[in-house]
Design a protein around this nucleic acid. Structure first.
Lengths: 235, 235
DNA sequence: CTAATGCTTGAACACTCGTTCAAACGCTGT
DNA sequence: ACAGCGTTTGAACGAGTGTTCAAGCATTAG
């Protein structure tokens, strides 16, 4: 595990081999068991490294956590830029959800949202700022209605996404939809997306778009597999 | 667990003096700092009791946590029944939010939602079941529209409330509204309620009700204190 | 007054945690 | 071959954890 060689990792510039391995192991463990409940030793073991080594790279457990937050923030910023460049999505996190599918990143996000730290606050600030900008773009494109509460609406939509993420375990338990990896159970998605559209559609979407989406979901009310699930809806 | 003596506490039948004091101290601490991050010793100190005493009453820390979950569940069940009896609210949790204002119970709920346990799963199940029943009632009363996804819609509304609760720290940071105690900053509520109504109103409410609520919020878009904030809206 | 019963305690145990530190390892340049 | 240097390690420390246990305290019953 040496120089800038192998491993098709290389997210951003400062990523080094071992350091990145430790960081990713930390993200996975933190995501699975929570940050406070995860020990430095466990992370070290997952990364195949001595415990002392993780604090050699990150000054402390708090430092490790900060590094994870910043890494995830960078990842999401990158994906958000992509999403803006490429076609439109109704959910600023939709792109992230797709490319991060099967990855512990979103589950980590759910954890860090809920265990306060300066870095996670910054992360949320960034997501909200992105969302405000994003929704403004959708409005300009004639996809969502104008609003008397533009900023607040964007904040609420962000928190709808983040809240679903924070409670994803319960949400999956009760609906079968895993916000961390929605494609995992496609059959549950139809009902979920249908209800979401029904709930948010009239208040959020332009009548034209609402109608267009509406009959993509011409599906037996509580029925089985049917229906495509286009990228849409806040979360 | 013996004597049926004093202290005007008596929530439900099994509550005894010291035991209840410990349980309430635990709820407060758990709410403030998280469950995993709270030590039995800290709870004991808050309750003015020796650490060994809390495990004498509850068999373990897990037992204590379970007792807290069950207590909160009972509390919410009770409040839900009241809410159904008394006038209608749009949010099944609205009644709870009002009577539990200034209490750590809702903040505790936010924590327990996010640190899994069998008891907290049961609590969520209960809340969702209540919500399904509740929304069905609202529909029958002609306050909310019919839905093709009745159950899913109720689930989503519940998770809208619970998500806001789970992220209440961030929500307050960014909007000034504290879901744990909304009356604390009434000036922020107007914008929040307005945006919520704008977002959910058309999709959820009956046109008549939507319109009626609408001009309760005839308020300068991002302006200051104005406007009443009737009990309404999902959260 | 004595005995008993349940509430309450302090000290202790076994364990895990985050963190420190000096020593070994492996590679690079000379 | 040697020296140098960043990487990596194992052992250890001190603090804090949940939990156990036998002994004290108070109140009530006989």
């Amino acid at each position: 595990m040496r120089s800038t060689s192998g491993e098709p990792d290389g997210r951003s510039a400062d990523d080094r081999t071992t350091r990145a391995r430790i960081r990713d192991a930390a993200i996975a463990r933190f995501a699975r068991e929570g940050i406070a409940a995860t020990s430095v030793r466990a992370v070290a073991a997952d990364a195949g490294v001595a415990p002392s080594h993780v604090v050699h790279y990150f000054r402390s457990k708090a430092g490790l956590r900060a590094a994870c937050d910043e890494h995830v923030a960078a990842l999401l910023r990158e994906l958000q830029d992509e999403a803006v460049d490429a076609g439109l999505q109704l959910d600023p996190l939709a792109g992230a959800r797709r490319t991060l599918s099967g990855t512990p990143v979103l589950a980590y996000l759910a954890r860090t949202l809920v265990e306060p730290s300066p870095e996670s606050d910054a992360l949320v600030d960034q997501l909200v700022a992105d969302s405000v900008r994003y929704v403004k773009g959708l409005e300009a494109a004639g996809l969502v209605r104008a609003s008397d509460h533009e900023r607040m609406r964007a904040v609420l939509l962000t928190f709808w996404s983040l809240g679903s993420l924070a409670l994803h375990r319960q949400l999956e338990r009760l609906t079968g939809v895993d916000m961390t990896d929605p494609e995992a159970h496609p059959e549950a998605l139809a009902d979920y997306a249908g209800a979401t559209l029904e709930l948010f559609g009239p208040g959020l979407l332009t009548p034209a778009l609402a109608q267009r989406l509406q009959h993509l979901f011409a599906v037996p009310p509580d029925g089985g597999t049917a229906g495509p699930h286009p990228t849409g809806e806040p979360t």
